[in-house]
Design a protein around this nucleic acid. Sequence first.
DNA 1: CTGAAAGCGCTTACAG
DNA 2: CTGAAAGCGCTTACAG
Lengths: 351, 351
Amino acid sequence: MEPDPSPTAARPHPTGGRATLRDVARLAAVSPKTVSRVVNREPGVTDAKVAAVTAAIEKLGYRPNFTASSLRRANGRTATIGAVLENVANPFSSALHRAMEEVARERGVLILAGSVDEDPARERALISAFAGRQVDGLVVAPASSNQSYLTTEILGGTPVVFVDRPPVGIQADTVLIDNRAGARQAVGHLIAHGHRAIAYLGDLSSIATAQDRLLGYQEALASEGIRPCPEHIVQDMHTEEAAEQAVHRLLELDSPPTALFTAQNLVTIGAIRALRARHRQHAVALVGFDDFPLADLLEPGVTVVAQDPSAMGRLAASLIFRRLDGESWEPAVHEIRTQLIRRGSGEISAV
Amino acid sequence: MEPDPSPTAARPHPTGGRATLRDVARLAAVSPKTVSRVVNREPGVTDAKVAAVTAAIEKLGYRPNFTASSLRRANGRTATIGAVLENVANPFSSALHRAMEEVARERGVLILAGSVDEDPARERALISAFAGRQVDGLVVAPASSNQSYLTTEILGGTPVVFVDRPPVGIQADTVLIDNRAGARQAVGHLIAHGHRAIAYLGDLSSIATAQDRLLGYQEALASEGIRPCPEHIVQDMHTEEAAEQAVHRLLELDSPPTALFTAQNLVTIGAIRALRARHRQHAVALVGFDDFPLADLLEPGVTVVAQDPSAMGRLAASLIFRRLDGESWEPAVHEIRTQLIRRGSGEISAV
DNA sequence: CTGAAAGCGCTTACAG
DNA sequence: CTGAAAGCGCTTACAG
């Protein structure tokens, strides 16, 4: 049995489906080429024909098929770029997305976005789906351990920019936070407030940014001649709950830390929950990596090293567009600076 | 001057650009149709030809042009749906987006998303750009005052679902929060805690949801025989700052409210800032409409009437897909229930 | 099991 | 100023 057409789905056109440029041409009694001229606002069509074509377009409810035109058009551009994000719903990714959209909109370009959720298979599937839809460029926050499979796209002339994490096995423009410097800044701030027993709580150690933040932590301590207690370094937490448990365990140690450096968003939140549960939020210092909404409304306010996802997104998008405009340069790494925001939790002094 | 090709952009194919199905056919010494069969995993091709084609694909770095194939394919589907959101970076929109993505991914469908920012012109521009790219369906959180211009799309057979706000001037599936009932629930909760002087603080009165929330507020009061003080009703706030100012003014009235019903997210945050600044957060009760991250970590925790954007997004996407699968029904409004979450701020009793 | 011809909706490259 | 022919990369509808 044929599926019933929707009751509201009357067909304005006898052949079913939408009106085409040809239909408009027929109704306006001109050639397809003339309709094309009118649609694309090319000059040199008599007013009478423009009027006839416009009327026919109106009458048939004709909408140009941009997809078909880009197949034939000289540059073949689809005016679409793909954004491979960690998770469109998390504040960092969605700020990136929004900033890219802003830059893209000025050029009439749309964004196709998708979430990877740290799944390498999904990274590849998304990129392949985007490539299949002929995106003009690709902004990728990589999750897999190697992106050399993208060589084909880059060789084919599609600009690719990596954000947040560096690519492996391939050269391409990359927009990163200076994670090491940011972590040094955070930990240095705690040291300046008299802390020496500073714990590191970080995300999956497989993630490059987590590795860099741990490095920065170690460097900051080393530069002050502090040797971190191995028990104070906790890695591989990817949820609030894991971080919460870890902080509980840390505070039950014989020599608990007096300060925490929480190297990722969810880890920061989890740590705050644990401190709250123990009524220690005004006693144990905390600096988090990555800002989050309402951090200033908590008590104490949460001191963070803030990233600037909007700046990253804007830069990533503009690199894409500059390449599409024909500019050319050797792929480079762009590092966006972090900013320490003092709100209280990081200014608790060691006793 | 011709733009220089990027130094890394060597051309694997003599004609420049990417390899096509034809190139593969030539290299594998088969017809284009056979390559098409292999690419689409159609049965009935000899192993030898499959191997030859696969090798050629590999050698040339061939990627099928899905856009071109959908132009010719019987159903013409692009496996893409468009999401017209308020702002991809706000938590409500991004939760909607994410939920739609989840449903879409199961079917290999991608999401094209864009932000309207309450600008009617952008709503139309986005929808037109999506339609031009032949999206299979459209999920729209409308900002303009009339959506009848979408009639053409719906008549053309493109499923359209409205979310968060009802469409005007057109019949289509719509997924809403029960704003009136939610507001009644919030205000009823405050009344149950002894409050009679309850302020309403709401978003732009031009927005349908804001109107419904005000109605719910008025109904809840009326049902208890309470007549609201006109000065306690403040509308048309669209930023945190505006809400903050408004709360300051309310608390300086001769008869200030003892409780606040903040009918939107940013308004809630702004109100909390004002209460904090006056150290009144434990004295003035507050119930917000719409949940937000960390609401439970503030002091007091923020009592809210929560919407369920994930449920809305899932439902909206599945309605699109059911229509695409050929199901048919009269357009209907689906109301998703709200949920009161008690966290402290709403349980402060009137003195 | 395989392929030649036609065509999806549009633009290019011409010719008049 | 206008249009007929060819073709973008692919699939359809056939024929063998």
